[in-house]
Design a protein around this nucleic acid. Structure first.
Length: 513
RNA sequence: GGCCCCAUCGUCUAGUCUGGCUUAGGACGCCAGGUUUUCAUCCUGGUAACACCGGUUCAAAUCCGGUUGGGGUCACCA
């Protein structure tokens, strides 16, 4: 481990791999990262996998890759607590020797019973310290009998302690409210959360612990552990929780909760970062669009909110749309291609030794095909199609439903959709015929000329929609779409005429029905 | 229930520390209008909040106390 430079600020993000990276976790990671970068410090990643039952490698991978995707990169780590068991064990043994911790042979059943009794009496649950008064002989006997035990930390009975929280100010607590001497290790000397956390924060020379408000109540315990071990505690900053629309702690039941889910729905990392940064933090001024770099420049714990922030999907959508609109075309196309593939609109074929990166990104050397058709569809062409919807997309996953008519051979028309306002079938057929005749005079099949000729004709009537609406629906088959001239240019004359014709046929068919 | 934290538009928030500059500002949403063949974008306007009660003060969203409300946490989970 790198040794700490003098006055260097060191922060850590310490997720436990018991689930995919949660959006709230991502925000905690971000705040730590921003604080480190802003202060030329170091950002350390620590995997808290002391719960062997629930921790998995898959979740750890997900956390790592999610952070990577968000470009929240660590300067040190990942350190795994499962690889540091010897360190914890030594500290526990020392506390035992010094009499600051002791063996407890109470069974879970006994403890459960006690807790229930206390609850019934409306008393706070609390360990009464029974095993602390065990004699040396009794202890040795129980140990010999191989009775299950746990190791508890002896804490002061009634002492007021306080710490200075960087976002909340002074927080006081009384040791009598902690719930008695608490368990720091199991009978195989494997340490529990508060202990490993306290030890690692010291051992990794963490100067600032920035974490969710739900850890406030753990702080006294960790301070007590550090005190018993004879170490100085880091400074703490407890940031407000991320809330669901019902104002309770954000979780799976509020819908998408993991970074992965947002990524898959087509949210951009820039938008997600910008959005979660502004949840519970706001720099002075009225600006709301920030890149990661700009966030680093302006970040300060002083500007952190003390109350919880509701996760508002509509604002995320707005930001995502904003970032999509500001993307370079090539980047947008690359970002959209996986969604077109997923929607079955195109197929991507890669040169033999090249495969798409597992996460995001597309190999430019890939070739794209429309299923069922022989010829390639060029990257350029995909760009023309996609950019028609750049202004309209909120999330990347919408690209398929927006652009499907460019890839499909035939369109199933809904007859009524072809009618503009109170137009009749006769009017609609005439409009389609008129359009075809105008378009047949177009010499250079470009948007400008198409638009000029069509608008000229459409303007003969006050209501341009009489001509243009049926044409647009004939081309797209949709109630809402990009403009007809843009569509025509991308579609090309052949398909354009074909669609005008088949729309007309659809009218006929509808008449016969 | 004990302990802890919190409290400005529906939501994110500015203003609170250092009381008067506030007819409480911005953004998202929503509504209306403009641009437009549709949708979206864009532009203009509108809607909407200091939880309550007391106190301090010439003056309180801002300071103090209480009430209410919300949240978190009370494991051999993290």
């Amino acid at each position: 481990m790198d040794r700490k430079k003098k006055n260097e600020i060191r922060v850590r993000f310490a997720p436990s791999p018991t689930g995919n990276l949660h959006i709230g976790g991502a925000r905690t990671a971000l705040f730590n990262y921003l604080y480190a970068k802003k202060n030329k410090g170091r950002f350390i990643l620590r995997i808290e996998d002391t719960d062997r039952e629930r921790s998995t490698k898959e979740y750890e991978d997900n956390i790592m890759r999610s952070l990577e995707w968000l470009e929240i990169n660590s300067d040190e780590g990942p350190f795994r607590q499962s690889e540091r068991e010897e360190i914890y064990k030594k500290h526990i043994e020392r506390l035992l020797e010094e009499g600051k911790a002791y063996y407890c042979f109470c069974t879970r059943e006994h403890l459960e019973k006690m807790r229930n009794k206390q609850r019934e009496k409306k008393e706070p649950p609390r360990y009464e310290g029974k095993c602390f008064s065990l004699t040396q002989k009794e202890k040795e006997r129980l140990l010999k009998e191989k009775k299950n035990f746990s190791i508890r930390l002896k804490i002061p009975e009634n002492e007021i302690l306080e710490f200075d929280d960087l976002v909340r100010g002074k927080v006081k607590f009384n040791t009598k409210d902690i719930g008695g001497d608490f368990v720091i290790a199991r009978d195989d000397f494997s340490a529990l959360y508060n202990f490993v956390c306290a030890v690692d924060d010291m051992d990794m020379e963490i100067t600032h612990v920035i974490r969710g408000e739900d850890h406030i109540s753990n702080t006294p315990k960790q301070i007590l552990i550090q005190r018993a071990l004879g170490f100085l505690s880091p400074r703490y900053a407890h940031i407000a929780m991320l809330l669901g629309s019902d104002k309770s702690k954000l979780s799976k039941r509020h819908g998408a909760a993991s970074v992965t889910e947002y990524k898959e729905k087509g949210y951009l990392r820039e938008a997600l970062i910008n959005f979660i940064a502004l949840l519970g933090w706001r720099p002075p001024g009225e600006r709301e669009i920030f890149s990661l770099t700009e966030l680093i420049e302006t970040f300060s714990l002083k500007d952190c909110q003390r109350s919880g922030a509701v996760f508002d999907l509509q604002k995320l959508d707005y930001l995502n749309g904003y970032y999509i609109r500001n993307m370079k075309r090539e980047d947008l196309v690359n970002a959209c291609i996986p969604y077109l593939v997923k929607a079955g609109l195109i197929e991507a074929k890669f040169e033999e030794d090249r495969y798409p990166p597992a996460y995001g990104g597309v190999v430019p050397q890939a070739s794209y095909y429309v299923p069922g058709k022989k010829e390639k569809i060029s990257f350029q062409k995909l760009g023309e199609i996609i950019s028609l919807y750049q202004e309209r997309m909120k999330v990347l996953s919408e690209v398929g439903e927006f652009t499907d008519y460019f890839f499909k051979e035939n369109i199933d028309y809904q007859k009524e959709l072809l009618f503009w306002k109170d137009a009749k079938e006769e009017d609609t057929r005439k409009a389609l015929e008129k359009a075809a005749s105008i378009l047949s005079k177009v010499e250079n099949w470009k948007r400008e000329e198409i638009e000029e000729k069509m608008i000229k004709e459409a303007s003969k009537d006050k209501d341009k929609g009489k001509l243009l609406w049926p044409v647009r629906v004939a081309l797209s088959g949709k109630k809402a779409s990009a403009g007809p001239f843009d569509i025509m240019e991308v579609l090309g004359p052949e398909t354009t005429f074909k669609r005008l014709k088949s729309a007309k046929n659809a009218l006929k068919r509808a008449e016969n029905q």
